[in-house]
């Protein structure tokens, strides 16, 4: 008996989806004809070619050569060396990878790096000022013990800044709702809400 495929990391992942290497049954509706299949194979090999991507990250320009399948998250972590942004699921379900792209919060695992060509990316490493003074959100997280293990924290902080920018931090209920895409398994939630309230009031006040 032949069973295909052996379980892959993410089942039908974005990579296999893109490259057409899914099992025949799953791929059938996508590849209706042999001609299309060939076309896909050609696309497939091109997808592996490195492309030039330029990004501004925390105010610095970066010129990168990346596999087109590289997520913005992996570009930051593995190619730029900014490991503050975390991988907690790699498919948009935990929020650990949240960064700001042109000021808006984005799940960097769900965005190919090439899609962000020319964008301004802000990560947790880019928040404190050069003299070491913390961003009010960072300080608020410390003041309210808004983390335990700290792994979800960069994503929480970036998301919290995005949440305030969007105008979704007007009440504690709003904060809870609009921060619910960022899972904290240590469950620091009440402290995260308190921290966001403090930072919101401070940044509004200034």
């Amino acid at each position: 008996m032949l069973k295909n495929p052996a379980s892959s990391a993410t089942g039908l992942s974005r990579r296999s989806f893109m490259t057409g290497t899914v099992s025949a049954a799953a791929a059938a509706p996508l590849l209706a004809s042999a001609a299309k299949a060939e076309e896909a194979a050609a696309v497939h090999s091109r997808l592996r070619e490195a492309v030039a991507v330029s990004l501004r990250i925390n105010g610095q320009p970066y010129a990168l050569s990346l596999d087109t399948r590289t997520s913005l998250l992996d570009a930051l972590r593995d190619h730029v060396g900014l490991t503050g942004t975390k991988k907690g699921c790699d498919h948009g379900q935990c929020g650990a990878c949240t960064v700001l792209v042109d000021g808006k919060r984005v799940l960097s695992c769900l965005s190919f790096a090439v899609m962000n060509q020319g964008s301004e990316v802000t990560t947790v490493e880019g928040l404190a000022s050069s003299d070491g003074k913390l961003h009010p959100m960072q300080q608020a997280f410390i003041d309210h013990d808004a983390f335990q293990c700290g792994y979800c924290t960069p994503g929480q902080i970036m998301s919290a800044i995005g949440c305030i920018n969007e105008g979704h931090a007007n009440s504690e209920d709003d904060i809870r709702e609009f921060m619910s895409g960022n899972i904290c398994r240590c469950a620091a939630y009440p402290n995260i809400v308190a921290a966001i309230v403090q930072a919101r009031d401070q940044t509004r006040g200034t």
């Binding site: 008996m1 495929p5 596999d67 590289t70």
Partner: peptide, 16 residues
């Protein structure tokens, strides 16, 4: 690369 490793892992076929 991570991408190549994942692609390869997904192409491993087992018979049971």
């Amino acid at each position: 690369t991570f991408e190549a490793a994942e692609e390869a892992a997904q192409l491993i076929r087992a018979e049971y």
